[in-house]
Simulated assay, not measured.
Amino acid sequence: MSKRSIGVAATGVVLALGLAHPLLAQEMGARGGSSVTIGARIQAQYEASSVDDTPSSFFIRRAWVTMDGRLNDLVSARAQYDIDGQTVLEAYLELTPSDALQVQLGQFKKGISYFWLVPNAWLPIIERDARVTGVDHCPGVGSVCSFGRMTGALGLDNYEPGILMQGRFGEYFGYRFTLTNGEGISNRDVNRGKSASGQFSVYPAGNTRVSAYVALDETLDSHGETMGVPAYGAEVEIGTWLDGPHLIANGLRGRNWKLSDDAKFSAFQLMAFWYLPFAPESRFAGIEPMLRVSWVDSGAEDRGSVTGTVVTPGVMVYFVGRNGISTNVDFYTSGDRSDWSLKVQAFAFF
């Protein structure tokens, strides 16, 4: 059976299960007394760009199936499959001996910043990299100069095989550490180096978090030799999802190794959300206006400093739970150029 046939069959199974309880992931018994929970997400998107001769388009942005298995309080596992891309995104064994230590061994999202770690089920921003179709402008990484584009294209935030350790110490401290191949979704490394990232968080009060993170990513330099690429940053979060005002601010500095061995980039991003619930008798759950502001200096000093700014206003309307429709407009400016992209996405999770 082909991969696409398997994907179609898996989609059919999940859709059939979703008909019984469309708002909840489905839990079922499994061998050995364990349980398996199956869920899925489908995100359909419309996108239009200001760039000349760039057609607007409807497409399926995501079609994922997720299976979470639990043997007992200590051992669990996850498998997440991208049906449309025919790719395994997450596949790991998880050990949770205590709140202070959780270990994942397999393939997971490496992300050093919470902006990339937060599930797309929770984020009403449609595209984290704020791309504008038809724009290939940012030196080294291409597309637009944005916080999400720099961290994603430079391999700081992606899916990779390796080991992850994370945990919480009481109410006030948390950590996250990863050691991975540094090659993205791949079963094999290409050199002896490994990529490491770490995040340390402090929770001073209520829904307030302050985090510092650092990464040493291994890649090949312009001479084909393995080199460590450092990056470091900080993040502040005030508030939480679906509960009034919510702010997340990121600052990051690192090396734009796709431009040159020595190019250094700086990136800043601020996101603001405000969830407003509707009355219980309403047919809608709530509405969430949002705003993103992102600024990047790409480090292209040899050709004159190339900076980019993205401003993204948007709004998400929730029908029930995280299901709804989000609308974003990504406005990109750099020097004398100005481009925009309209994005509308339907979120469906079950």
Rank of each mutant, 00 (worst) to 15 (best):
M67H: 07
M28I: 13
M316L: 12
S143N: 14
S113R: 02
G233W: 00
F169A: 08
I325R: 00
A263K: 10
A348G: 03
M227A: 03
Q199I: 08
L154C: 12
G33C: 09
M227R: 03
R128S: 09
T333E: 11
N323C: 05
R41S: 03
V75Q: 06
H137L: 09
L89S: 07
F331D: 05
S35P: 10
T87V: 08
T151V: 14
A20F: 02
S211Q: 10
F115P: 00
L123V: 15
E183I: 02
G206E: 13
M165F: 15
S260N: 01
Q102R: 14
F331K: 07
I38E: 02
R70F: 04
G206F: 14
A16V: 10
I38L: 15
A48Y: 07
Y318D: 01
R149V: 11
A16T: 07
T208G: 10
A63L: 12
Q269P: 12
M165R: 15
A9G: 15
L291F: 02
V296H: 05
P139S: 13
F200P: 04
T208F: 06
G18E: 04
S326A: 04
V51Q: 09
G251K: 03
F349C: 04
G251V: 05
E235W: 09
C138T: 13
G142N: 12
L123S: 14
W122E: 06
F349L: 08
G184I: 00
A234I: 07
A48N: 10
Q107R: 12
F273D: 09
G254Y: 02
E127I: 14
K3L: 15
Q199W: 03
S266G: 06
V135M: 12
E183C: 01
Y203S: 02
L220Y: 09
G254M: 04
V210I: 15
A40Y: 00
R131E: 12
A48W: 00
V88A: 06
G140E: 14
F108T: 01
G314H: 04
F347H: 03
I83S: 01
G7A: 14
L15P: 10
A267T: 08
F59E: 02
Y172W: 10
V132E: 09
F349Q: 00
A44C: 12
G182F: 08
I125M: 14
H223W: 02
G155Y: 05
H137Y: 13
S186R: 01
L24C: 05
P22L: 04
V75M: 08
E94N: 05
D73Y: 13
R61Y: 04
V103Q: 09
F173Q: 06
C145P: 13
G314F: 00
F108P: 09
Y275I: 11
M165N: 11
A100I: 03
S5H: 12
A267K: 05
A267Q: 08
S2R: 15
I325C: 01
F115L: 11
A263N: 14
S266K: 11
T307C: 07
G228T: 07
A48R: 08
R61S: 11
L93Y: 06
G299C: 02
D297H: 10
H21N: 04
S326V: 06
G308A: 01
F115Q: 11
